[in-house]
């Protein structure tokens, strides 16, 4: 394709938008609404996933063993835990290490108080394994399995954190998918109508083009360009707003709910935005292209 042909198609596509400005604006607005919602759900889902990942690395299962069991037996159980496919890491904490950790945490600055226990470890039977899973979704199954091991006395885990985050994320994904699909269908319908109106405006021109010997590509291209431009604009507007909105929202949350900063950690805008731009642009331009291409293919005789 010649560069002049490319610019001709681009110019004619933009002219189409100008001739048909209200329909084009309506289509762009619906795409904007759709992509704005998409970006919101994208940011929410990504952040929840991020928090789930954080939880997966920090929220673990701790198992304690029966009194009188030897260290060799505990280590053997540890090996069988590590062999499970869902286990990312299993860390052995001996009774001595547990006592040391306890002292560091609770006798800080008052070490002399702990000296009374120097030869008598009060956590002598508290050797444990800290187990971290690859996915928090596997926690329930893992706990069930650990429960079947007779030497295990106690299992500590947080079922609420795990299932709560997991379920919330699943629900959010489902809800966003449903809303986005509906909005995309509406956007495609509007683009299709816009393109049909543009084709009606250019009916005479298209007929002349056809008789002069213009190819189907040359006749259709301005309409597809129109759809792509509408899709592009429809994606660019919400992306700009989401950029600033996200930054402000994260700053606001951290300021107002700083106390929860251990639980809530947000993805920085510079990390989440490139991916969001790519997906939103693909959606906007894609829906513009698909809507216009198929409409013009179906309705314009070339």
């Amino acid at each position: 394709m010649r560069i002049s042909t490319f610019f001709y198609c681009l110019k004619e596509g933009i002219k189409n938008i100008g001739r048909n400005i209200w329909f084009s604006l309506a289509s762009a607005a619906i795409i904007s609404a759709c992509i704005f919602l998409f970006c919101l759900f994208f940011a929410l889902t990504a952040n929840v996933q991020y928090m789930v990942r954080m939880a997966e690395s920090t929220v673990g299962i701790t198992v304690f063993f029966d009194e009188g069991i030897s260290e060799a037996e505990i280590l053997a159980i540890g090996d069988s835990i590590r062999e499970r496919s869902e286990v990312k890491e299993a860390r052995y904490i001996s009774a001595e290490e547990a006592w040391e950790n306890f002292q560091k945490e609770y006798f800080k600055g008052m070490e002399e108080l702990a000296e009374g226990f120097a030869d008598d470890n009060p956590l002598a039977d508290s050797a444990s394994y800290e187990i971290y899973l690859k996915s928090i979704d596997d926690q329930a199954g893992m706990v069930e399995w650990l429960d079947t091991i007779p030497e295990i006395r106690k299992i500590n885990y947080s079922s609420d954190t795990a299932s709560g985050l997991s379920n919330f994320n699943r629900m959010l994904g489902l809800l966003s998918a449903v809303i986005i699909i509906i909005l995309l269908a509406v956007a495609a319908f509007l683009i299709s109508n816009t393109i049909m109106t543009a084709a009606a405006f250019r009916r005479d021109e298209n007929k002349i083009m056809r008789l002069i010997g213009a190819t189907g590509f040359m006749i259709r291209a301005p309409f597809v360009v129109e759809g792509i431009v509408i899709g592009f604009v429809g994606a660019a507007i919400p992306l700009i707003s989401v950029y600033f909105l996200y930054r402000s929202a994260v700053a606001y949350m951290m300021e107002k709910f700083g106390i929860l900063s251990n639980l809530m950690e947000f993805i920085p805008i510079q990390e989440i935005f490139p991916e969001m731009v790519a997906v939103a642009m693909m959606l906007g331009v894609g829906i513009g292209f698909v809507g216009s291409f198929f409409t013009i293919r179906r309705h314009l005789k070339v």
Binding site: M1, R2, S4, T5, Y8, D204, E205, K207, I208, M209, I212, G213, A214, T215, M218, I219
Partner: peptide, 20 residues
């Protein structure tokens, strides 16, 4: 069947533009 929004020159040029 001339294009009303194009000048004489543009109407004639149109026949060449659309075939590249």
């Amino acid at each position: 069947r001339l294009l009303k929004d194009k000048t004489v020159y543009e109407n004639v040029a149109f026949a060449q533009r659309v075939i590249g």
